[in-house]
Nucleic acid binder design. Structure first.
Lengths: 346, 346
DNA sequence: TGGTACGGCTTGCGCGTGCAAGCCGTACCA
DNA sequence: TGGTACGGCTTGCACGCGCAAGCCGTACCA
């Protein structure tokens, strides 16, 4: 193996300039309380740039005790679209504050070496609840800032911001004249915390509007659950279905079409998250667009406050959600081709 | 701020046992060439476990010069499903070898501090081509193992393994009697390397089978490109369309249905990647399932060889791909309801 | 002119670990 | 009985950096 080119260290910069290594450090870190002449500062910065100096993060982390890493533990679910949207924002915000966001998807098999041991992040944010064992492991690795805190709210999934959209779904369907509304929950266990939360929100919304009891059915794409759910809904006079997310909405819609129902004439369907999928379907899928940018800012803020030992924000994020109406809930307009949609046999 | 509980170090274990710190290190690392008595070994292991000792990775990385981290740079595209499938495998394989796989999605805005500076990974694997500037930045951070190598193949996206499925698409459609076949390429710039590769593969496959020239059209879901493409295909007598991926296939199918065509009777459609979406649609979408486990093993192998300074494997991965036929290409069977699909107005 | 304040730097320690080198006692051999 | 080999450990340095403490010269004031 060829002698790999040693990386440039602060000592190299110092030596090349004839100053001490500390001076270099003070300049590059802009250390408060240290006075460095403008001339020296200039020379150090120029020489560091010229040599291509990059601080060694492991050494920094070791010496300072802070890694400037925020570790985000993601659930093992395919909520990719919405997640990525707000992760982009959160990454950017944290980056501007000098922190790096590293995401990690936990898979059931379980890491031999959990990533938090490896990275020694300053803050861990967990989307899904952290088990006691995991929490202990983090503590042993010196991680004290773990969000959400143990007691106060089991997970972010219970956050009102993530269920606000569900209220909108129900209200929207109600506004459009639907009185018997079904809800398609997820049969996927990985979704259950969030799915449960949204289902509860849907029930509350229905109650508030004086609607008939929501007919909740679990839908999965492995078995015929969507077909069964549609049949049930049809029997019970349900005219519109709100789904946990766009994927489930797509399954419901496909099952309805396959059963010979017209969408939205016989069954209106609305999804959640406004993923790209929604506009790819025929009929195109109405959905609820959530404020991913706001959510990203919220998470970044949460992490930064924790990192700086500041108290967490009093209240959850104040997010805007809105209904994006499309063909799956709108009645056919003259210019639309919805009237050519499949019809049940007489 | 309360005095945060100091983490347990190897020195703590050594002190508690009355042995030297090196002994602890030798035992825990199983250092070859060092002989430690079974009794001492036992005591060290027991005490380390009792105290909950976790090695400080930053210190290890600093001292050893190896971080045991493999950084995977992902493209900024929504190829989530297939990616996640093989990332799970790659993560597991690397983990068993003692390496941790950290994934990072590059976004255009560009990190202020690139993650490779932060993590000092031993190996960087880039799905998308690495720019010269990025390569320089990595070198400056002491990263010498960057995959793929600069010259030899611009990126993995050109790998035959990633285009094999496209050949299957065309062959399958040919087998089903289609002679004029269209190809739906991605208009999304982020996809272009892969999309180009698959398009080329489709052309080759068509040529090999003696088919009429493939009619390639770019499809996007922001404009009416799918509708236009379908109209063109219809005019040119195209009876089947192979798509770059399942998303594009869904858009094509939706546009066809919206135009009053029957799928597959008037236009057959086949996607690529066999994402969950395929089975959510109506008609359900035929697709090509690729060997994500094999791909994961391949990438893990690639990374491990690089980490160990071994030569890269001679040839690319040998992956199995297969067509998953569904309603969008299969003629309606008696038991199916496809005959109720929308028809063009006389 | 002597003392003080302070700007501008240097010296030096510590972070927790890997690893080379050395040290000591015992067993073995000549 | 003296020398050697070696198992089983310890000592000590290095990794690159942050940061506390100290040092030196100049400017300022009494």
């Amino acid at each position: 193996m060829p002698e790999r080119t040693r990386r440039v260290t602060a000592a190299d910069v110092a030596r090349s300039l004839g100053v001490s290594r500390s001076t270099v450090g003070y300049v590059l870190n802009n250390t408060p309380g240290q006075t460095i002449s403008a001339a020296t500062r200039e020379r150090v910065l120029a020489e560091a740039a010229r040599l291509g100096y990059r601080p060694h993060r492991s050494a920094q982390a070791l010496a300072s005790g802070r890694s400037m890493i925020v570790l985000l533990l993601l659930p093992d679910w395919p909520m990719e679209y919405s997640l990525r949207q707000h992760l982009d924002t959160a990454t950017r915000v944290l980056d501007e504050a000098g922190y790096s966001l590293v995401t990690h998807t936990r898979h059931d098999s379980g890491h031999a070496r959990p990533l938090w041991e490896l990275l020694t992040p300053d803050v861990v944010i967990a989307w899904t609840p952290v088990t006691a064992a995991e929490r202990a492991s983090m503590k042993a690795s010196g991680i004290t800032k773990i969000l959400p805190p143990p007691r106060q709210g089991r997970s972010f999934l219970a956050s009102p911001a993530l269920t606000a959209g569900t209220h909108l779904q129900i209200e929207y369907l109600h506004d459009r004249g639907h009185r018997r509304i079904g809800f398609a929950a997820s049969a996927d266990k990985r979704f259950s915390p969030l799915s449960q939360g949204r289902m509860t929100a849907a029930k509350q919304a229905a109650q508030r509007l004086g609607l008939d009891l929501l007919d909740v059915r679990s839908v999965d794409h492995h078995d015929g659950s969507a077909a069964r759910a549609v049949r049930k809904w049809q029997q019970e006079g349900v005219s519109a279905v709100a789904a946990f997310n766009d994927d489930l909405a797509a399954m419901v819609m496909a099952a309805a079409l396959r059963a010979g129902l017209a969408v939205p004439a016989d069954l209106a369907v609305i999804g959640h998250d406004d993923t790209p999928l929604a506009s790819m379907l025929y009929p195109s899928l109405s959905s609820v667009s959530i404020d991913n940018v706001g959510l990203g800012h919220y998470f970044a803020d949460l992490a930064l406050r924790a990192a700086r030992d500041e108290p967490p924000p009093e209240k959850g994020p104040d997010l805007q959600a809105r209904v994006v109406p499309r063909e799956s809930t709108e009645p056919p307009s003259p210019s639309s081709l919805t009237d050519r949609a499949p019809r049940p046999p007489a």
